[in-house]
Design a protein around this nucleic acid. Structure first.
Length: 825
RNA sequence: GCCGAAGUGGCGGAAUUGGCAGACGCAGUGGACUCAAAAUCCACCGCUGGCGACAGCGUGCCGGUUCAAGUCCGGCCUUCGGCACCA
């Protein structure tokens, strides 16, 4: 018998599969489909362990579903636009395209060395003109639907990356990619109107039972829906109305000031002829110069300046002074907030600092509030209204509704829903992305590039210099064009699109990757999509997963797809750690997949990574654990090849009834394993326990060695074992399959083993004896033992007699086929 | 502050519906094979006490429900993650 040599076996089968195009799939409406998808990678150049984990999980599922008879699509591609390619150009003088494609080549080689069942014919690369042509086409679709627009706004700017960022790409005030602090800039930029879909993006989360709760919660928080009242104060001095937004309309009688954002549009009028203009302007300037982190921290001191101008509260006619403050956000609500110090903690702090009056309007039921004793605002949504005119005595929630009704009836206010979600800023001042297909004409204004002229290709003759702004803007050949409408001299838009646009629809392109007439055909996309199981890291919980949901809804509204959600089931895998922390170059704790695969083979790497922890939990890499996985595969190899001759000579069917008790016991383990592995993969996503139960089966198989075993049973065991292990360790199982069952094709196309329910039947059971809930003994009884028989058998045990002696039996509880608990006093 | 997840041997983890806590693997200990080693195969392996049979304790902490709780309920603690001046 030869040794298990993974390097030889794996190369051999990878080549065979590639030559046979073993994993090609075509749409076939007569068969049930399964779309398994792992998040496609950015081509950084090398796979890391997170990729290995991601792909291993997806591959198990894809192979298992294939064996269950599904028409499985399992594609791979590259999210290949983005900053690193441009940085490489700046630092090393390589062209972004060359850098990217050579990285892709290397990563494909590494992916192929893992033995993944990808249909490479479906591969997409987002930086390829055949792909970004359709990304541009989709931009135009959004534009035509009124969902893409350009506006001047205060936007997030990252100096290091030399570009603007979307809100979702600012993490704790820092750039998601380079971790440098972001600051605000007033720029004219392109946006996608994701806010039009805020409500549906929130509501439809309910339609995703197959998504982890925490991801849905994160999206909920991000969308941030609130219901409230928008109503207007009169400013007689300026002849203006000032709208404010509040979720606590019940506190409207407690307003003692109005807080304005430092960017509020009314400031211009306020400053005019104002004796305090200089002071106010200085304050606004100071606030605007603060960083985002300072400005949005709830810790920072609340500050402001009084304007000397008063607004009139429409509810009670009382005057409230306008203050310009540092704690009101210009972008949320109306940029102006009614100040109610008694019931809002920020307003409280502000009023205390500047000696603004405070009026209590809500009285808790269980105690009495006294202004002079209060140290903070009363923010509980509980109590009865006071000092609120005709609403006095009303319960808080009742009053909230009544006060909003009043505003609507009298016409100075309206109920409104507000979202935290902002429109998606999609333009980037960078080169390596899909150009925005717009031409600016002095006569016609914004003009879309005609469809027949797509794609707008990236020019190659550009220069990359450190700190240079937008290489495209400097490329004269690119910039100057004729207007498609009137033929006048015009200029191209020189911004490119956020790479998250490219990745918002790639899973749809996989269904029809070579289509040059449209992004994808309706028939194909509706056969394959939505994705049945999506697998990726939790870091995309908001960014990619929210954007993709948005895209799908827009395409649904356009009639291009029949479904409204792109990913039916989502699995967020845990991170791969080493010594308790994330693998990183700076910590020097990186384990290279290539090395591990070179040393032990891909089957071992895959098996270990799936066995060591549940897929959704963080996994601590262990070199010794890898050895264990390798040893296990060796055990499988040896025992099956020791039985090689017997298996080949054995009949395909045999008489199960004539097996000995020992053989039947073993066969029960075999079928229990089939049942468990099937359920663990199909229903529970518990690959670690699936692997451990296969290990138990192998241990039981070893225990049978040297004992009589019917040839038919050995064959049945070998066949099931190889199949059960096939999704996890595809190469060794393919090799064993061909050696033991030559002429039956690939194990990966074989039918998944079926459980023989009759094999699971037992003729004896072990019954546990408990005294007062403590286990004292066990007894083996016939499987059909009834309650009475169980109790009698248990009572007869010496242990039972010993513990009952001298005591009174209060109660006897009998759980059929399991245990008898005797309660004594 | 709000929301979410987790806490089990020396370690990774298992226990799916309230019914034998610690499956499987790693590490460790002992043995077989070997001139020897590696590899392999077999056995033991929560803590405390006891030569032992055995007894007691044990799933973050405190309390509760139950014949029976890792699992259910109430109250905490710790860790991780998300959101956070959103009016």
């Amino acid at each position: 018998m030869d040794r298990y040599e993974p390097q030889e076996i794996e190369k051999k089968w990878q080549k065979a599969w590639e030559e046979a195009e073993a994993y090609r799939t075509e749409a076939d409406p007569s068969r049930p489909k399964f779309y398994a998808l792992e998040m496609f990678p950015y081509p950084s150049g090398n796979l890391h362990m997170g990729h290995v984990r991601n792909y291993s999980i997806g591959d198990v599922l894809a192979r298992y579903k294939t064996m269950e008879g599904f028409n499985v699509m399992h594609p791979m591609g590259f999210d290949s636009f983005g900053m690193p390619a441009e940085n490489a150009a700046i630092q090393h003088g390589v062209r972004p395209g060359d850098w990217t494609y050579s990285n892709i080549e290397n990563m494909e080689r590494q992916q192929k060395s893992m033995g993944l069942s990808y249909d490479w014919e479906r591969e997409v690369k987002t930086c390829d003109p055949s792909y970004y042509k359709w990304t541009q086409w989709l931009f135009e679709l959004f534009y035509k639907r009124g969902l893409a627009y350009k506006k001047k706004a205060s936007v997030n700017w990252c100096d290091t990356c030399g570009t603007v960022l979307a809100n979702e790409q600012v993490i704790d005030g820092k750039c998601w990619r380079c971790d440098h602090e972001v600051h605000k800039k007033d720029l004219s930029q392109w946006f996608f109107k994701i806010t039009d879909y805020a409500d549906r993006l929130l509501k439809d989360l309910e339609k995703l039972p197959g998504w982890p709760e925490r991801v849905k919660t994160m999206q909920e928080n991000w969308i941030g829906r609130s219901e409230g009242l928008e109503f207007s104060f009169d400013i007689p001095e300026l002849g203006e109305k000032l709208p404010v937004y509040t979720t606590r309309a019940d506190t409207a009688f407690g307003v003692t000031f109005i807080a304005l954002a430092a960017e509020h549009p009314l400031l211009e009028k306020i400053l005019k002829d104002n004796p305090k203009a200089a002071e106010i302007e200085a304050f606004c300037k100071k606030v605007r110069n603060q960083s985002e982190i300072e400005r949005t921290s709830s810790e920072s001191e609340k500050e402001g300046v009084a304007t000397g101008i008063y607004a009139v509260n429409p509810f009670n006619g009382k005057k409230a002074e306008l203050w310009v403050t540092n704690y009101v956000l210009a972008e949320y609500g109306t940029g102006a907030v009614m100040g109610v110090p008694s019931e809002d903690s920020r307003d409280w702090m502000f009023a205390k600092k500047y000696d603004i009056p405070i009026i209590i309007t809500l009285a808790p039921k269980d105690r009495e509030l006294k202004l002079e004793e209060m140290t903070e605002a009363y923010t509980d949504k509980d109590g009865v209204l006071v000092n609120s005119g005709k609403f006095d005595g009303m319960e808080m929630h009742e009053a909230l509704a009544a006060i909003m009704d009043e505003a609507e009836e009298k016409g100075f206010g309206k109920r409104r829903v507000n979202y935290r979600l902002r429109d998606w800023l999609i333009s980037r001042q960078r080169y390596w992305g899909a150009p925005i297909p717009v031409i600016n004409c002095p006569h016609c204004g914004e003009v879309l590039v005609p469809e027949e002229d797509l794609p707008v290709r990236l020019p190659e003759n550009v220069s990359f210099e450190q700190g240079a702004v937008s290489p495209l803007a400097q490329c004269e050949d690119f910039v100057h064009v004729k207007c498609p409408k009137c033929g006048a001299d015009a200029t191209r838009e020189t911004d490119t699109m956020d790479t998250f646009i490219c990745s918002s629809w790639y899973y749809l392109r996989y269904t029809d990757p070579k289509n040059d007439k449209e992004p994808f055909s309706k028939d194909k996309v509706n056969y394959w999509a939505p994705v049945d199981q999506y697998i990726g890291g939790i870091e995309h919980a908001i960014l990619h997963l929210l954007y993709s949901r948005f895209f799908t809804k827009v395409l649904h509204d356009e009639g291009m797809v029949d479904f409204e959600e792109p990913f039916t089931n989502l699995m967020t895998q845990g991170m791969v750690l080493k010594d308790g922390s994330k693998m990183s170059k700076s910590k020097g704790n990186v384990v290279s997949p290539e090395e591990i695969i070179g040393k032990y083979g891909a089957d071992t790497a895959r098996l270990f990574i799936l066995f060591a922890a549940p897929v959704d939990r963080d996994l601590d890499w262990s070199d010794q654990g890898v050895e264990g996985a390798y040893r296990f595969l060796g055990r499988v190899w040896r025992i099956l090849l020791r039985y090689e001759d017997a298996i080949k000579a054995a009949p395909a069917t045999y008489d199960v009834a004539s097996l000995s008790k020992e053989e039947k016991d073993f066969r029960r383990v075999l079928h229990q394993t089939i049942k468990k592995v099937t359920e663990d993969i199909r229903d529970r996503f518990m690959f670690n326990t699936a692997v451990s139960s296969i290990m138990e089966l192998v241990n039981a198989f070893y225990a049978m060695e040297g004992k009589d075993m019917a040839a038919g049973l050995v064959r049945e065991t070998a066949e099931a074992l190889v199949k059960l292990l096939a999704p996890f360790a595809p190469h060794i199982t393919e090799e064993l399959w061909h050696r033991l069952f030559a002429g039956t094709g690939s194990v990966h196309q074989a039918k998944w083993p079926q459980v023989d329910e009759s094999a699971l039947e037992v003729d004896t059971i072990e019954v546990v004896l408990q005294i007062n809930g403590k286990v004292r003994d066990r007894v083996t009884l016939p499987a059909n033992a009834d309650r009475k028989a169980m109790e009698e058998a248990v009572m007869a045990l010496p242990k039972a007699k010993q513990h009952i002696e001298g005591k009174e039996v209060v109660k006897v509880i009998c759980v059929p086929k399991k245990l008898v608990n005797i309660v004594v006093k």
